[in-house]
């Protein structure tokens, strides 16, 4: 049971992380990359939480909250200072 859950969630999360990384790499605008890196942080948080649930410990909980905070500060900061580039209008 434990091994099956671990393998299935690992495969699913790996596919999801690959998709998010692909969007970070090719994403046409800066905001798409910010959004995809937010999703990547959520996937990392899910992996930490699954590790805690399967192995019955709470060591990663502080790391999970810190990850949330990092994602919040990062995306707000980048979104605040996005420049309005007139040459690349509507390239999303």
């Amino acid at each position: 049971m434990k091994d099956i859950v671990l393998i299935v969630t690992a495969v699913i999360l790996s596919l999801a992380a690959a998709g998010a990384i692909y969007r970070i790499a090719v994403g046409p605008s800066l905001l798409d990359r910010v959004l995809a890196s937010d999703v990547l942080l959520a996937i990392l948080g899910a992996a930490l939480a699954i590790d805690m649930a399967v192995n019955r410990h709470l060591n990663n909980l502080v790391l999970l909250v810190a990850l949330t905070l990092i994602g919040f500060v990062g995306s707000v900061t980048v979104a605040r200072f996005v420049a309005d580039r007139r040459g690349q209008v509507n390239d999303s």
Partner: peptide, 20 residues
């Protein structure tokens, strides 16, 4: 627990598919 964990992982996969 297994159902909850796999459903939570599928949410991440759905987000990645939506992003793509």
């Amino acid at each position: 627990t297994a159902v909850l964990l796999i459903a939570g992982a599928l949410m991440s996969l759905g987000a990645a598919i939506g992003l793509l």
